[in-house]
Design a protein around this nucleic acid. Structure first.
Length: 510
RNA sequence: GCCGCGUUGGUCAAGGGGUUAAGACGCCUCCCUUUCACGGAGGAAUCACGGGUUCGAUUCCCGUACGUGGUACCA
């Protein structure tokens, strides 16, 4: 279409934790930008002062950082189009709203909130349960259509609170091309005369996106599907302001839905169904309500990102595991699904499992370090890495390393005696005592050597391997779990293995 | 109510006028392993419905149903 540098933006309002769907929007923006060697911008849309939540912006920054989706321009790092916080751009917007009034595409409205409320009450009918301030109603309200020029000027001069609303055409089919949905047509009569500039002088989203996207030279605008119905307002604004040639291409992303149907996924669903919805832990500073995040639950950022990418997009092959870099290369907006996707936490866990399974032991050990610390365990990094390597394939989360390998850090406190005792006898007790004594002869304290020795001695004693392996495992771990027994013994080392055998034999004998 | 968007197994989904309609998650069976897992081999399970168009529709068109979003001086 043109060879302008690609510039996209993620424009959240700082009202709370960052929803998984928001992160996906960030992701798609980021992938698209990076693929086209373009810029990814973070713009904070804090035009609603009543909804501003302290800390939310920092939280968003941290989420992006954790995910590795860092913006090229943002309130935090600045950039050539600063400021990137709409509240700080406040003085900018009024002139454009006024320009629209002058050109006849917008008008002053002096209706008070109470008047609006009463209008809605009055006009409400079963057929029209939600009356809009539209081309019909505006004839009945207090605005620069119904008021004389003189009256308007007087009200303005007296600083009467007022808003500026767009004048939507009564009946005009407006079409545009959506990168995901193709041609979309909406009748302008269907949407109300949206407020552009609020009484407090702040722009609404509708004015602010258009003005800022223009000023910041945004080329592609990706946003959630919930914006589709108001797209005509934005498109008209681009036209009325005379910027049509610079209008970004639109892409309305499908929504992420509740797993059990009925509606878009919300924080509440996470609480209800037992999974996270926010990227990271979030505590609402007002209500003190705490919400658990993917990060703190043990998700790896690369797994989280990968999972999100596959929620609504695929590359047409059977590949499901993609690095960020691969995603940047392979992402294409026209392969984004049109329909909303129900979130599947089981699949999300599977992604994390995949990443954990294939992560190198040293990194895993580092991630596991805090857990060990919390348990009050001191262990050298090499040892932890070995353990991680042994148990990682059965872990979904980093924390699971403890559940599957705690016995590497502390001797079993109790034994699953029911699994051993029925078949326990003096021969077996003798076997372990003697084998334990022979352990010095093993050429190297490794799993294969140990197994060979164990096997040979079992044959000598004429006891089946199978009869011995389970008791051995239980001596070492306390129960029927863990990696292969000889790996455990080799990792534990000679002294510890011996101690545990002795303790185990004693326990089983009693 | 009105308007927009959507609809392939339970979920994510490939495909798109003629196919045995991929694959993944989950579930089940078996193999490996005398723990669990990993891995491997199988299995159950799908084109919302009705009309067209066509020699032939899951695929194109139109309806209906259902889902979902919007309908704020919130984004």
């Amino acid at each position: 279409m043109d060879n302008k540098k690609v510039r996209v933006r993620f424009a959240p309002s700082p009202t709370g934790g960052l929803h998984l769907g928001g992160v996906r929007t960030v992701l798609f923006n980021y992938l698209f930008a990076k693929q086209h060697k373009g810029d990814f911008i973070l713009r904070i849309e804090d035009t609603d002062q009543t909804r501003y939540v302290p800390g939310a912006e920092e939280y968003i920054n941290e989420c992006l950082r954790w995910c590795g989706l860092t913006p090229d321009e943002s309130p935090a790092v600045g950039g050539p189009y600063a400021p990137y916080r709409q509240s700080e751009r406040k003085p900018l917007y009024r002139q454009y709203a006024e320009q629209l009034v002058k050109s006849g595409h917008a008008y002053y409205a002096f209706d008070t909130p109470e008047e609006l409320e009463s209008m809605r009450e009055r006009m409400k009918t079963p057929e029209n349960p939600q009356p809009q301030y539209n081309h019909k109603i505006r004839e009945k309200m207090r605005n620069s259509f119904t008021l004389s020029e003189a009256e308007v000027q007087e009200l303005l001069a007296k600083n009467t609170p007022h808003v500026i609303r767009i004048k939507m055409p009564a009946d005009q089919e407006l079409s545009f091309t959506d990168l995901i949905r193709g041609e979309v047509t909406i009748n302008t009569g269907q949407v109300d005369d949206k407020v552009l500039l609020k009484a407090d002088g702040m722009p609404t989203y509708h004015l602010a996106v258009v003005v800022d996207d223009y000023l910041m030279k945004i080329t592609h605008a990706f946003r959630g599907e919930e914006w589709l119905p108001s797209a005509p307002v934005h498109i008209l604004l681009w036209k009325y302001l005379g910027w049509e040639a610079d209008m970004p291409q639109w892409a309305h992303l499908p929504l992420i839905l509740k797993p059990d149907g009925n509606g878009k996924l919300s924080k509440r669903d996470g609480d209800r169904l037992g999974f996270p919805v926010y990227a990271m832990n979030w505590t609402d500073p007002r209500s003190n309500e705490f919400t658990k995040g993917f990060r703190e639950l043990g998700f790896l950022p690369e797994a989280f990102i990968n999972m999100l990418a596959m929620l609504g997009w695929n590359d047409g092959t059977e590949q499901e595991i993609f690095s960020l870099e691969e995603l940047v290369n392979k992402f294409s907006i026209d392969r984004v699904h049109k329909a909303g996707a129900k979130f599947d936490y089981e699949k999300a866990k599977w992604f994390n499992h995949q990443y954990l399974h294939h992560k190198d032991n040293e990194s895993l050990a580092r991630l596991f370090e805090p857990v060990l610390e919390e348990k009050g365990v001191k262990a050298n990094p090499e040892y932890v890495a070995t353990v991680a390597g042994l148990v990682k394939e059965r872990c979904y989360f980093v924390n699971d390393i403890w559940d599957h390998g705690f016995f590497f850090f502390e001797a079993p406190a109790a034994y699953d005696e029911a699994a051993v005792k029925p078949k326990w006898n003096a021969d077996k007790a003798a076997f372990f005592a003697e084998w334990s004594a022979k352990l010095d002869d093993v050429s190297a304290f490794t799993a294969p050597e140990l197994e060979a020795s164990f096997k040979a001695f079992a044959a000598e004693k004429n006891i089946k391997m199978g009869e011995l392996q389970l008791p051995f495992r239980i001596m070492l771990t306390g129960g029927k779990f863990g990696p292969p027994v000889f790996d455990i013994a080799a990792t534990l080392g000679l002294a510890e293995t011996r101690t545990r055998i002795a303790k185990g034999v004693a326990a089983f004998n009693s």
